[in-house]
Computed example of a mutant assay.
Amino acid sequence: MSLPPDWLEVHEGDAPLVLSFPHTGSALPAELAKDFLSPWLARRDADWWVHELYAFAQQMGATTVRSAISRSVIDLNRDPSGVSLYPGQNTTGLCPLTTFDNQPLYRAGREPDADEIQRRRLHYFQPYHDALAAQIARLRQHHGCVVVYDAHSIRSQIPHLFDGQLPQFNLGTAGPDGTPDTSCDNALADVVENLCALSGMSHVRNGRFKGGWITRHYSNTADGVHSLQMELACRGYMHEPAADQLDEHSWPSPLDPDHATPLRHTLAQVLDACLEFARTRSAA
């Protein structure tokens, strides 16, 4: 068996839970770095520190799959065909050309063409999803039910993508056809939503972020694979600068463990609920 590429991090657990971290990376391959206008812009929209926020998941027996590559190189949570997951809404593509704030990422004439996009699909997208699919299949050999939890975060205010301030918890359960509440059993979505509500923090189910390609692609409830996406507002675990003060000196700010404690407490309850759901279904 060949070793995974050095940017792909896989931790194998035995519990029926897989956490996917497709956007926490900030690495820019040397051969591409010169094409970007600014390394900071190319890294700015990462899901900063999310894999660290969920570090306790491995102690629960969860499997984790993480890419260290910046989403500006290729977005591992987009449809590889390039079809938009959010028709009619502002979003970024498979190989983004702009930041979340609609600023250009590339120097003029250095944008990826069709051949380069295909190269990135083969070099980055495919290995990540081969690894994720392999881990789901491995766990399905031992458990009748597995939960795939796609972990994300984003700045609380990005006018180009959504109005106002994003809720703290954004639960997405869009299935293969994009219809909400089809990527997992309603019983699982209900208990996760209830835990978010009990936290006292703001939350929404299938709001602006209904679930990306990972949630939709890996969902197979008939075969015991239930998937969901959790998009967190960054303010729950790090200090966000005001929008007009966002620059390479203020962003990203570090993860604040004390500030993150309430959020992390609820996330631990959520993952416990995912495990309980999977184990109960497996036993049945």
Score class of each variant (00 low, 15 high):
residue 56 F to L: 06
residue 225 V to S: 03
residue 177 D to T: 13
residue 159 P to T: 06
residue 93 G to M: 03
residue 73 V to T: 02
residue 109 G to P: 14
residue 3 L to M: 11
residue 51 H to P: 13
residue 25 G to R: 05
residue 244 D to A: 07
residue 121 R to C: 07
residue 42 A to D: 03
residue 159 P to H: 03
residue 73 V to F: 07
residue 221 T to C: 02
residue 120 R to E: 05
residue 103 Q to M: 01
residue 28 L to S: 03
residue 35 D to G: 11
residue 205 R to S: 06
residue 17 L to E: 10
residue 119 R to A: 05
residue 43 R to N: 03
residue 25 G to A: 06
residue 16 P to R: 09
residue 262 P to V: 11
residue 68 A to G: 07
residue 118 Q to W: 15
residue 79 D to F: 09
residue 266 T to W: 13
residue 274 C to V: 14
residue 24 T to F: 15
residue 173 T to G: 04
residue 8 L to M: 09
residue 136 I to L: 07
residue 82 G to A: 01
residue 76 L to T: 02
residue 89 Q to V: 04
residue 238 M to I: 03
residue 151 A to E: 13
residue 42 A to L: 00
residue 268 A to C: 14
residue 176 P to C: 03
residue 129 H to T: 04
residue 100 F to H: 01
residue 88 G to W: 00
residue 173 T to K: 05
residue 158 I to C: 09
residue 13 G to L: 11
residue 156 S to G: 09
residue 255 L to E: 10
residue 273 A to E: 14
residue 211 G to K: 00
residue 246 L to T: 03
residue 73 V to D: 00
residue 168 Q to R: 15
residue 9 E to L: 14
residue 244 D to H: 08
residue 47 D to C: 02
residue 154 I to C: 02
residue 17 L to A: 03
residue 221 T to I: 12
residue 39 P to H: 00
residue 122 L to S: 11
residue 238 M to C: 06
residue 202 S to V: 08
residue 119 R to T: 02
residue 105 L to K: 06
residue 20 S to P: 02
residue 274 C to N: 10
residue 227 S to T: 14
residue 233 A to S: 10
residue 161 L to A: 02
residue 42 A to Y: 02
residue 204 V to M: 09
residue 46 A to R: 05
residue 20 S to M: 06
residue 271 L to E: 08
residue 51 H to C: 09
residue 183 S to K: 03
residue 78 R to F: 08
residue 116 E to C: 07
residue 66 R to H: 13
residue 178 G to F: 00
residue 25 G to I: 07
residue 107 R to Q: 12
residue 109 G to L: 11
residue 34 K to W: 14
residue 166 L to H: 05
residue 225 V to G: 02
residue 283 A to L: 14
residue 215 T to M: 04
residue 181 D to S: 01
residue 170 N to I: 08
residue 206 N to W: 00
residue 184 C to M: 06
residue 260 A to N: 04
residue 113 D to W: 03
residue 99 T to N: 00
residue 204 V to S: 12
residue 127 P to I: 03
residue 169 F to D: 10
residue 116 E to I: 08
residue 190 D to M: 10
residue 252 P to Y: 06
residue 163 D to G: 05
residue 151 A to L: 08
residue 104 P to H: 01
residue 32 L to Y: 14
residue 206 N to F: 02
residue 122 L to I: 14
residue 65 V to W: 05
residue 106 Y to T: 03
residue 208 R to A: 04
residue 196 C to K: 01
residue 153 S to T: 07
residue 90 N to H: 13
residue 147 V to M: 06
residue 173 T to H: 02
residue 272 D to I: 12
residue 203 H to C: 14
residue 279 R to Q: 15
residue 58 Q to W: 08
residue 283 A to G: 11
residue 142 H to F: 15
residue 73 V to G: 01
residue 21 F to N: 09
residue 217 H to A: 04
residue 275 L to T: 13
residue 61 G to D: 02
residue 83 V to W: 12
residue 55 A to S: 13
residue 261 T to I: 11
residue 3 L to A: 12
residue 213 W to H: 11
residue 269 Q to I: 13
residue 81 S to F: 10
residue 186 N to L: 15
residue 80 P to D: 10
residue 270 V to Y: 15
residue 66 R to N: 12
residue 8 L to Q: 07
residue 172 G to L: 00
residue 199 S to M: 10
residue 13 G to N: 07
residue 25 G to S: 10
residue 94 L to C: 00
residue 25 G to P: 05
residue 52 E to F: 12
residue 3 L to Q: 12
residue 151 A to R: 04
residue 158 I to N: 04
residue 28 L to T: 07
residue 159 P to S: 01
residue 21 F to P: 01
residue 198 L to V: 15
residue 125 F to Q: 04
residue 208 R to K: 12
